Amino acid sequence: MTDDFEARFDRLILLVGKLNYMWTNTESLLIHLIAGLTRTNKDISVIIFLTLNTTRARIDLVERLAKMEGRPPDIRDPILKHTQRLSKLSGIRNRYNHCIYSFDPDSGNPKTILMRIADRKTDIKLGRQDTVDEGAMKEIEKVVDQLSVANRDLWKLINDLGFPA
């Protein structure tokens, strides 16, 4: 592997690490929303959060709790706005966490190979490959920045609603 390949790979790994850190840190704020919406303490909310083993399940729970009958719109609506935002940001995180990496021998760019089976009507497709070029790197950087803003916004919401912090 040449120095250029190594530099690109190092940049990708650093970005994916930042993405994972920001994602995990931001997703964990759902604990506070669960605690506030269920009127329980953080310890119980942590148990609920950890029992649900996917992001989708955690977001679904928070959204369903927010939509319960009698929930005031001034609580429900901002929570739904934030969970929808997290759902949108989860796509890129999933793309870079549920893959293996290789290198394009011609361009030297890292490639992702999706670790998922795509069922078609009469066949299956394995390992969709995508090149991680400069545009993809910028996309990851943008999502990391968006997660940083989402994190601050969620903390503000948690505090504004008086939920357990």
Results as ranks from 00 to 15, higher is better:
residue 76 R to V: 09
residue 119 D to T: 10
residue 90 S to W: 05
residue 115 M to H: 00
residue 58 R to Q: 05
residue 65 L to E: 10
residue 115 M to W: 01
residue 115 M to Q: 13
residue 73 P to F: 07
residue 95 R to I: 08
residue 78 P to T: 07
residue 104 D to S: 07
residue 109 N to I: 04
residue 96 Y to V: 03
residue 99 C to T: 11
residue 62 V to D: 07
residue 91 G to H: 11
residue 57 A to V: 04
residue 82 H to S: 11
residue 76 R to T: 13
residue 84 Q to T: 09
residue 84 Q to K: 15
residue 114 L to P: 00
residue 112 T to P: 00
residue 105 P to N: 12
residue 121 K to V: 14
residue 108 G to Y: 10
residue 65 L to Q: 08
residue 110 P to T: 03
residue 77 D to R: 02
residue 59 I to T: 05
residue 72 P to G: 13
residue 117 I to E: 14
residue 62 V to Y: 03
residue 117 I to T: 12
residue 81 K to V: 09
residue 103 F to K: 11
residue 77 D to N: 11
residue 110 P to E: 01
residue 78 P to C: 07
residue 128 R to M: 00
residue 88 K to C: 04
residue 81 K to A: 10
residue 91 G to R: 10
residue 89 L to P: 03
residue 60 D to P: 01
residue 78 P to H: 08
residue 70 G to S: 13
residue 100 I to L: 03
residue 74 D to R: 06
residue 81 K to E: 12
residue 84 Q to R: 14
residue 83 T to G: 09
residue 126 L to Q: 00
residue 125 K to M: 03
residue 67 K to F: 05
residue 93 R to Q: 06
residue 67 K to M: 12
residue 93 R to V: 06
residue 63 E to S: 08
residue 116 R to L: 00
residue 98 H to Y: 05
residue 86 L to V: 12
residue 101 Y to K: 00
residue 119 D to Q: 06
residue 128 R to C: 00
residue 123 D to M: 08
residue 107 S to W: 06
residue 73 P to S: 10
residue 120 R to A: 12
